[in-house]
């Protein structure tokens, strides 16, 4: 039922109006006196050295990828958790089922651990 989501839309409008309104207000009230020094990248008062769009370690990319993998696996735990209590006699079966699922995850987890993907130097 779509009407269920209307309050969320209301909240969204309120939140966007608040954020947007505050930004517009500060733009209207604040002074505008730009100067060359003000518009430089801020490096604690030093003259900026090198390019501003630097490169960053590939490890961050690796973390993002691992996050996606594990987050999807965690999402699969939620429906399982919700039906578990109602399952009655099938609980034992469900438990061993999730044991197999987590077993598969653990293999991958041990693999990335041993490969050193979780180490930061």
């Amino acid at each position: 039922m779509l009407v269920q989501y209307l309050p969320f839309l209301v909240l969204f409008i309120v939140a966007v109006a608040f954020a947007g309104g505050a930004m517009v207000l500060s733009r209207l009230l604040g002074p505008k006196r730009p100067s060359a020094t003000k518009l430089e990248p801020y490096e604690s008062g030093m003259v900026p050295i090198g390019g501003t769009r630097g490169r960053f370690p590939i490890r961050f990319y690796l973390v993002a990828l691992l996050f996606i993998l594990f987050d999807i696996e965690i999402i699969f735990l939620y429906p399982w958790a919700v039906i578990f209590l109602e399952a009655g006699a099938a609980r034992v079966f469900l438990f061993f089922e999730i044991l197999v699922f987590l077993g598969v995850i653990t293999v991958g987890y041990v693999y990335i651990w041993r490969k050193g993907a979780l180490d930061w130097e």
């Binding site: 801020y42 961050f60 973390v63 993002a64 996050f67 987050d71």
Partner: peptide, 21 residues
């Protein structure tokens, strides 16, 4: 367009992602 911002953003996002799990 500031190297400290870039590194800070990367660090924070990696931290937020890691602890989401």
């Amino acid at each position: 367009a500031n190297k400290y911002s870039l590194l800070g953003g990367m660090r924070s996002s990696a931290q937020m992602l890691s602890y989401e799990l």
